[in-house]
Design a protein around this nucleic acid. Structure first.
Lengths: 143, 143
DNA sequence: CTGTGTGCAAAACGTTTGCATGCCT
DNA sequence: AGGCATGCAAACGTTTTGCACACAG
């Protein structure tokens, strides 16, 4: 997604409804580069919207995913993460603190599927995940 | 891991114990290219070892992971999968049936971390996951 | 004999569901 | 008015934990 307004229009155009809860969730997501989990979104939304439920968070994330406005990341063993940045990019995840970072380098030139594979599998996309340790954790651990 | 015997020796050399349950689990894993989940391993082991518990499955998988004999795949939203093949390779996952396939093409030439990234993150490995639909599901869905 | 491994049951965890009510359009 | 959205509580599936007992070394 780009802007809250754009996202709202996308919802409206599909007959979906604009609610204060959805607006609040979209505000948290807009420009968010922290790859939040449902719980992180819940916590932030709760600050200004104390009565919101997890059901609504999950429902809205599902709607946004299905309308192609956010991406679900399968990177973390323990929970799902969401990324409002739809531009093609990849991720680094710290083995220690589990923070997810963006990497905008383009590797797509080399990622070509050989004929032998495309014969038996229709590839629609790919995701590269880098594992390692972030600077902060390196310093804490006494490199 | 390569062979059951090799894996057992690796355990022994670390003061860990060889039990019938561990042997049974290793037999299921040896040469297994189906990227089984804990439950799939449990089901297979149960055939010859009806009293084994899930605790032992998880415990053994954890031990094998920590001794570097199997790899845990973070690919599937709903459960963990394990891969005894430690050779560098990547995976395809079918969006429909969630089967995981291997792809042995080497993309590493192009996957170079730029200085700007390695300054703030120490990369130890990476994994490329391809998404799409496998041949079987394509045919069922009426392509 | 020591301590690691096992199996059971219960708990924990993130996520999903059923349902009555609420509210956007 | 109609139907989608909300919030609650309960259910779900996977994984983890506490504990007493068993057994490999």
């Amino acid at each position: 997604m780009d802007t809250v307004d754009g996202a709202l229009q996308a919802l409206r155009s599909k007959g979906l409804k604009i609610t204060p809860q959805r607006i609040a969730i979209l505000k948290v997501l807009q420009g968010n580069t922290s790859h939040p989990s449902a719980e992180e979104i819940y916590k932030k939304v709760t600050r200004k919207h104390p009565n919101i439920s997890f059901t609504t968070i999950y429902n809205t994330l599902d709607v946004l995913k299905k309308t192609g406005q956010i991406r679900e990341l399968i990177i973390d063993k323990t929970r799902k993460h969401f990324d409002p940045d739809l531009s093609p990019h990849n991720h680094l995840i710290c083995d220690t603190c589990h923070t997810i970072f963006d990497i905008f380098e383009d590797f797509s030139d080399a990622i070509t599927i050989p004929q032998s594979v495309s014969d038996v599998f229709h590839v629609t996309g790919h995701e590269i995940v880098f594992y390692g340790i972030c600077k902060e954790c390196l310093q804490k651990t006494g490199n």
